[in-house]
């Protein structure tokens, strides 16, 4: 089975224009991801100093932006951006899945909803890790990608709800018991910590830093990937589209050099910020 590294070598050998590219993410989806990760970085950078308010770097960071009042302001601002992004995404799901009754949103090979194949893929993948079986063939969204998606989805609901409960505590106290106001801070900070640790370690490595994608998978920035990449990373979707004769419809223009460079700058910046925050978090967490 040709691997991604092989694909990368081949694509480098071929001239840029010769390689066919396929659309994976629409422009709207890429913008949504950009809004998601920039506001998430902002939330992490302003939330961590609050969580670890006794540490030296938290003091420095707070001083740098004008104290903890400013930090809270930026935290709330990023929260609003993320809330809007989340609502736009919900609207898209409702419009496509319920109003237009588009197939494959709530169930099937292209859905984000987990199915029995994902369970089999997980075990198959682990068997392959250990050299006990062949590498499973993945469809449009692999099980770990679905996990990323639902972790963020659940995380946004939990962190968002607990965050707004603290922001508007007297209002929420009208229908929440008093102890819930204590609980929301614990939930908010623990779930936030989980999100930060997960995204900045697991998601970064699984999606960007593992050898097959190293140093970065640009598809979420450019929206397109090469035919080789498509074929090796998501063989089932490639074959299905080919069999259905829908493959040609997905052909897209190769990304321009500026687009690739721009994506790299943005992507690396995000990854570096994330890794720095990860180190700070781990150092503060382990010292606690």
């Amino acid at each position: 089975m040709p691997d991604l590294e092989q694909a990368a070598i081949e694509s480098r050998e071929k001239s840029h224009a010769e390689v066919r590219h396929f659309m994976r993410f629409t422009r709207a989806q890429r913008y949504l991801h950009a809004a998601l990760f920039s506001s998430f970085l902002g939330l992490a950078a302003t939330g961590l100093p609050l969580r670890f308010s006794e540490s030296i770097w938290a003091r420095g960071l707070a001083k740098g932006v004008g104290g903890f009042g400013a930090i809270l302001f930026f935290h709330k601002f990023c929260a609003l951006v993320l809330t809007v992004a989340f609502l736009i995404h919900l609207k898209e799901i409702v419009t496509r899945g319920i109003i237009h009754r588009e197939k494959g949103i709530f169930w099937g090979a292209t859905s984000m909803v987990a199915n029995w194949k994902d369970v089999k893929d997980l075990f198959g993948h682990i068997r392959w890790f250990l050299g006990l079986g062949p590498k499973p063939k993945f469809d449009r969204y692999a099980y770990w990608e679905k996990f990323d998606y639902w972790a963020v989805f659940w995380g946004m609901i939990v962190i968002g709800f607990s965050g707004y409960a603290m922001w508007f505590a007297p209002f929420f106290a009208r229908f929440l018991p008093g102890w819930a106001l204590n609980a929301v801070l614990v939930i908010h900070s623990e779930e936030g910590l989980l999100a930060i640790l997960f995204i900045f370690s697991i998601h970064f490595v699984n999606t960007h830093l593992r050898p097959d994608s190293f140093p970065m998978d640009l598809v979420v920035f450019t929206g397109v990937e090469s035919e080789e990449e498509f074929k090796t990373k998501r063989p089932l979707e490639y074959q299905r589209l080919k069999a259905q004769g829908k493959l040609e419809a997905r052909v897209a223009e190769a990304p321009g050099i500026w687009q690739i460079n721009f994506s790299k700058v943005v992507g690396f910046t995000a990854i570096v910020i994330g890794l720095v925050l990860l180190v700070l978090t781990l150092s503060a967490y382990l010292r606690e």
Partner: peptide, 20 residues
């Protein structure tokens, strides 16, 4: 939740890295 999720995926990712 935090320890379980991270624990599972850290092992998962490390194995994956070694294999790749």
């Amino acid at each position: 939740l935090l320890a379980g999720t991270l624990g599972f995926f850290v092992i998962h990712t490390i194995l994956w890295l070694i294999r790749s």
